[in-house]
């Protein structure tokens, strides 16, 4: 693994501005997340990191969901609008193709089908399992940004990629070997596809 890596948990614009790469993680419900993101001006920081054009940015779970335009969670919340699209609830009557009921949250180890070649998928098998835990799923307007999908009563966006941004719905930090490989790949990534 890499010989790097110093990391800071921060919302300090100077530290984020000077960072080689940025992780935008998230756990929680979207309304409180967005409120904190705005209060700490992380929306501006994130947008300038992305505008930089080559600084690699990795968004995780609610961090990825916050990039879209709007979420159905907490009665509907406007989100960052960096990736046009909605974040939707799985619904209470989710079923598999045989009509068996599926539980929500989508919680556990599911397969991720890789839709594009990307440096962050390096040395990770197609349909490797990653750990998911979410009740809402991202539905970007453009299929071109979808880098990976999961299958859970519907085909949802497991990963999205655009320029120097990579977003994942699953938790790489909790996905054992495949997850650690993805984080390693992120540390090696130069921000281009």
């Amino acid at each position: 693994m890499s010989a790097l890596t110093e990391s800071d948990v921060t919302h300090d614009p100077a530290v984020i501005g000077a960072a080689d790469r940025v992780v935008f993680p998230g756990v929680g419900a979207i309304r409180d997340c967005m409120a904190e993101i705005k209060r700490l001006r992380c929306d501006q920081l994130l947008k300038s990191a992305l505008a930089d054009g080559h600084k690699p940015v990795l968004a995780i779970c609610v961090g990825m969901q916050a990039l879209l335009s709007r979420s159905e969670e907490n009665g509907g919340v406007e989100t960052l609008g960096i990736i046009p699209g909605d974040v939707r609830f799985f619904g209470q009557d989710l079923k598999d193709p045989e009509g068996n009921r599926l539980k929500v949250p989508h919680m556990g180890w599911n397969e991720v089908s890789q839709k594009v070649k990307h440096p962050l998928w390096a040395d990770i098998e197609d349909r490797a399992r990653f750990y998911f835990v979410h009740s809402y799923w991202a539905s970007p307007v453009s299929e071109e940004v979808v880098a990976g999908t999961f299958d859970y009563g519907l085909e949802g966006c497991a990963a999205l990629a655009k320029d120097n941004l990579f977003g994942v719905q699953f938790h790489p930090e909790k996905s054992h070997r495949a997850g650690l490989q993805l984080l390693h790949n992120f540390l090696m990534w130069n921000g281009t596809c």
Binding site: V27, G28, A29, D32, V62, N74, P105, M107, V133, S135
Partner: peptide, 9 residues
């Protein structure tokens, strides 16, 4: 707790 941190946790 669910409202604050999300049902998933």
């Amino acid at each position: 707790a669910a409202e604050r941190f999300g049902s998933q946790c």
